[in-house]
Computed example of a mutant assay.
Amino acid sequence: MNEAEFVAAFSRELKSLRLSNGMTLEELSRASEVSISTISKIENLQQKPSFETALRVARALKVNFVQMMEGPGLPQSGMTRRTITRAGEADTFRSDYYTYGVHATEIARKIMVPLVMRIRNRTPPPLADWSIHDGEEFVYVMKGVLEFHSEQYSPAILNVGDSCYFDSTMRHAFVSKGDGDAEILSICLSIKPFEEQARHSGDRSVQDGV
Rank of each mutant, 00 (worst) to 15 (best):
A90G: 01
R120N: 15
M79P: 07
Q67H: 11
P72W: 09
H149P: 03
R82C: 13
A54Q: 08
S154R: 13
G101V: 03
V145I: 12
M117W: 12
A90L: 00
S150L: 06
M112A: 12
L55A: 09
I111M: 13
A104M: 08
T80H: 14
E137W: 07
M69T: 06
V139I: 09
Y97K: 07
Q76K: 15
E137A: 06
S150F: 05
P75V: 05
Q152S: 14
V63C: 07
E136S: 06
R56K: 11
E70F: 11
Q76E: 15
V57K: 05
D129L: 00
V102H: 11
I132N: 01
F65Q: 03
Y153D: 11
E70R: 08
V102T: 09
S131H: 05
F93S: 08
T80C: 12
A104G: 02
L61M: 08
I157K: 11
A128S: 05
L146Y: 06
S95M: 02
T99C: 07
T53I: 10
R82H: 14
Y97S: 06
G73I: 05
A108W: 14
M112H: 07
T85Q: 06
I111Q: 14
M142N: 10
P126C: 04
L146N: 02
T83R: 06
Y97F: 10
E147L: 03
V141Q: 10
V141T: 05
S131V: 02
S154K: 14
E106K: 13
P126Q: 01
Q152K: 15
N121I: 12
V113Q: 09
I157G: 03
V57Q: 07
M112R: 03
A156S: 14
G78A: 00
T105W: 14
R118A: 13
P72Q: 12
Y153H: 10
K143T: 09
I107Q: 11
E151H: 00
F138A: 09
V141A: 05
D134W: 04
G71R: 00
L115N: 02
M79D: 14
P124R: 03
I111K: 10
R122C: 02
G78L: 03
R120V: 13
R118F: 11
M79G: 10
W130P: 02
A54H: 02
A90F: 00
V57S: 04
A156E: 15
A104K: 03
M69L: 15
G73F: 05
R94G: 10
G101W: 13
K143H: 12
Q67F: 11
V141L: 06
L158E: 08
E70L: 11
Y97E: 06
L61F: 07
F148E: 00
A58I: 03
L115C: 07
G144S: 03
P75M: 05
H149K: 05
D96Q: 12
L115F: 09
E89P: 04
R81P: 11
L61H: 01
P126F: 00
Y153M: 11
Y100E: 04
P72Y: 09
F148W: 00
L146I: 02
Y97W: 09
L74C: 00
H103F: 13
W130F: 02
L158T: 02
D129C: 05
I119V: 10
G73N: 02
E89D: 15
